[in-house]
Design a protein around this nucleic acid. Structure first.
Lengths: 180, 180
DNA sequence: GGGCGCATGTAATGAGTTACATGATTGA
DNA sequence: TCAATCATGTAACTCATTACATGCGCCC
């Protein structure tokens, strides 16, 4: 649903065709969304069918492929508002896949666990670097960047604390576990 | 995939039938997973088909319905290890639906935005309370609880900072936006 | 007699992804 | 001539969910 919100939100500012939308999303919002191109095209189609967007087919003037420009309708604006409010007010508990591996960490010898967690730490750090490098165009996208920055910093500090504790156990000679 | 890891991880400790598994998950792990009952049954079936679990049908002695007890196989243990390592080392960027509503926050009058965010804050706080109330049985589940606690605290502090900034703009009379 | 606990499922649906297809122009 | 840019899609698939179905025994 948040993907619909994204598309409607961008189209509310300016009419665009799918390619431009995907381009913008990939360049400026990659750090906070995972929408894929075919999904975007699919959703634009669907939103148009449902009456939230109107599409204007532009037959190509030159050698360029034809394209459809989307414009948000009155119902679309209302729908956008509904989605916006609902998304703002509601909170769905998050699940982290890594939690399951942490929960069963006793399955792995401590040194291997440490190596894998170190690898993970690098990836989280890389993601944080990417967020910090995000183009800083004004507007409330600034809050979103701050959101991800804080989230990732917390993630790093938690990871570090887990690694510290494992390393401590390792030194105490309690690091022996049942491994296959 | 992390759902498979969860089921295999629990079965690695002790043979169980689906009902007990679901019961345990709901009581002790609700705060960190969103697996639904039919999904669990479905996955147990599938994991058995794939040779990672063996199932023993126990025809009911008394009036109780018959049940299938699952036991992890050697391949299952290996598969579990693979999933465990892969899940530990890899990091998939998280997306927060709320980000999309924050990105387009200028669509809403400031006072309404504040009211909705306040509602959200309450829900996040409730979730944090629930995590803190989680049964504290030993093992590395402790790390998972810590993970969620820190995540939710960060979430609350970020929310607060967004609300503060909106309130500040409101006072400066910049709170006027284009609304329908 | 009505609801809860025990125990398992199925059928339909949804949301999104992957891999693939098309085809013209422009620049190295 | 080879890749990239522009521009749009489809078909098949995965993963998981929702809503529903079943049926006995126990307790109030």
């Amino acid at each position: 649903m948040y993907r619909r919100l994204l598309l409607l939100g961008l189209l509310r500012r300016e009419d665009m065709h799918g390619y431009r939308l995907n381009e913008f999303i990939e360049r400026d919002m990659a750090f906070c969304t995972d929408i894929k191109k075919p999904t975007a095209y699919y959703l634009l189609d669907k939103l148009a069918e449902e009456g939230y967007l109107s599409e204007v087919e532009e037959t190509s003037d030159e050698g360029r492929p034809p394209r459809k420009t989307y414009h948000i309708t009155a119902q679309g604006k209302q729908y956008f508002q509904e989605l916006l409010r609902e998304t703002l007010r509601s909170y769905d508990p998050v699940t982290f896949p890594v939690d399951m591996s942490i929960a069963f960490l006793d399955e792995l010898p401590g040194d291997e666990a440490l190596a894998l967690l170190e690898e993970r730490r690098h990836r989280v750090q890389a993601q944080l670097d990417e967020v910090r490098a995000a183009p800083e165009h004004g507007g409330s996208l600034r809050y979103v960047i701050e959101h991800h920055t804080q989230y990732l910093e917390t993630e790093l500090s938690w990871l570090q604390s887990v690694m510290d504790e494992i390393a401590a156990q390792q030194e105490n000679g309690k690091g022996q576990t049942n491994h296959e």
